[in-house]
Write a protein that binds this DNA or RNA. Structure first.
Lengths: 339, 339
DNA sequence: CGGTTACATGAAACCGGTTACAGCGAGATG
DNA sequence: CATCTCGCTGTAACCGGTTTCATGTAACCG
């Protein structure tokens, strides 16, 4: 394994000059520089990152805290995969690697902080599966640049990225209204979750704007899962007045709702129109195609990468990024189902 | 940031003794050891991994080569997420971190080999999205312990993990036969892909074992996507004799097939029974529930972690692991559809 | 022509660990 | 009592880079 001293010897210069030829090319004589780079290529010299990190305290690695505890559902969401890819791609493009940190549960609580210090991580991204345990707080307070996804935390070196849940919900309701629906119900996520609360908020906001009445009996809480959506839809169908449209705050619940409607002998979208949220793979596959609010999943990764890198470069924590959501229209809200 | 020399000074011993107290506890006097560990805890001493890696040439990091080139479909498969989680969990459990390497496309070809050398990676896992480019070959030949997923490569320090595709296909066909189906067709994956070829092989094998004739007109090639499954199913329906069951080599294609059958005014499973492959999320969600062959996705990660760690520990490359597949029975192959 | 300046380079310390080797005291042995 | 072991610890070199500071040289100026 070629070292910098060896390369220096071959070129008849000192290690310092070789180092400069790579990191500070402009301060070294053009001829020398060329020779160093050429020789380096010839002998296949590669700087040792551990040595470099040791000397500079910069590792060009960003940690990913992703609690994949299997007892805690949520991490399975297709969502995460897209975010992960986006994040990795965006970070690579900026010269950073992504180090997946061991999950909590292992050992004591602040394993994250320890990992960051041990490995000289330059920053951290947290994909949040719902809990905000103290170890994450300590991490955010430890001073490393920190970006959280979907969790509104802020600090001198901490910011977050999230989707415009309120706006997305409003899009959905507006769309149903435009299609002539007036009795618009909603199946929400759990009230204590942030997306759940925000999507309900958007539903209410848009109802108000449209001058439609807010009816408590048209709001049923689900759990983001298929079974919860199924149960919630049944409750809606048992009510005195049947809604002619439902905004479902998650696609999986929407599939459950779809099934409940079918079991009741009703048809989507003729009897009841449906709009979901998330645009997961199933949405396109389940007949008649689920109209849904899509999040910019790749955008999450990019935005997170940008934020963390800018803080690493010394900037203050940038303001939170709220990513726009878009409506994807499919068969469940239109009269002519497509393939 | 506390260093080892500082800690040594506080304890009135030499840095060497402190180092030993951590890495070779049995050679240092019990009293001294206790004191060192206690003081370390008090002042929050953490060894610097870069320095340690520099000295020992062991990083306790495993690289993940995962080609997430967006032009190349396949990486989106839910499959990967489960594998990734399994891998990460299994590696953490063994004290290794997972470093996601920048994808190819960036810079010249052997970015991977370079990354491995620069970062002193102890091993590499390759999640393969279909291509086997020369850079991966060079990586495998470079001497680092290497485990490939779903790609049969072997060498002194290289092995692989894959699913029993043949056996899974046989399970599917046998199941259809047990349900009384005799005219069993298949929609295959692309012939040039390994899973595609193996699943077709299994189909043929089991047909032979059951004494059923092999009919070329009952074999149609798909592309692993919904549209390909849809088109393939239509071709099967146009044939002279209609099959009463189809083994579809991928769940997405199966959903396409399901749709084509519906459009033809036929019913699943009454007219045609269907068995898919992969057990992706949709399989459970799409009515009437897709019977399918499940792969042990978490097992992939665990097996890969075991293999790479054993090689890191000095063992020869273990033999390839072929993970068993299991049949998940749902409505598409039974007469009474479940919820 | 002496003195300043800019440029290019080298010597050496340093980052924070590990480890080969040597040394030392205490108890065991001849 | 001299010597040998054994258990424990310290010294110092080393891993492979970076960076401060000093130095030498050539160009520039009055």
């Amino acid at each position: 394994m070629a070292t910098i001293r060896e390369l220096a010897r071959l070129c008849g210069v000192s290690p310092a000059t070789v180092s400069r030829a790579f990191n500070n090319p402009e301060v070294v004589n053009a001829k020398t520089r060329e020779q160093v780079l050429r020789t380096a290529r010839q002998i296949g010299y590669l700087p040792n990152e551990s040595a470099r990190t040791l000397a500079t305290k910069k590792s060009f690695m960003v940690g990913l805290v992703w609690d994949t505890d299997h007892r805690r559902p949520g991490w399975r969401h297709p969502f995460f995969q897209e975010i992960l890819i986006g994040l990795k791609t965006a970070l690579s493009g900026r010269g950073y690697h992504l180090l997946m940190l061991a999950t909590s549960g292992e050992g004591t609580d602040d394993a994250h902080v320890r990992a960051v210090r041990r490995h000289n991580l330059d920053g951290v991204v947290m994909i949040d599966s719902g809990t905000w345990d103290p170890s994450l707080r300590r991490l955010a307070e430890s001073g490393v640049p920190c970006v959280s996804l979907d969790r509104p935390v802020q600090g001198p070196r901490t910011t977050y990225v999230t989707s415009d849940n309120v706006g997305g919900a409003r899009l959905a309701v507006r769309h149903l209204h435009e299609r002539g629906r007036r009795a618009i119900a909603t199946i929400t996520g759990p009230a204590h979750t942030r997306p759940g609360a925000e999507r309900l908020q958007g539903y209410q906001d848009e109802l108000t704007r449209l001058g439609l009445p807010y009816r408590p009996e048209f709001v049923v809480e689900g759990d983001f899962y298929l079974s919860g959506g199924h149960a919630a839809m049944r409750r809606l169908l048992e009510a005195d007045e049947r809604p002619d449209a439902v905004f479902v705050a998650g696609d999986e619940m929407a599939v459950g709702a779809l099934r409940a409607i079918g079991e009741a002998g009703l048809k989507v979208p003729e009897d009841i129109a449906l709009v979901g949220f998330d645009d997961i793979e199933v949405a396109a596959l389940v007949p008649p195609g689920l109209t849904t609010v899509a999040q910019d999943m790749a955008g999450f990764g990019t935005a997170a990468a940008e934020a963390v890198v800018s803080m690493i470069d010394g900037a203050d924590a940038p303001p939170p990024r709220i990513l726009p959501t878009t409506l994807v229209v499919r068969g469940s809200s239109t009269t002519s189902p497509e393939l």
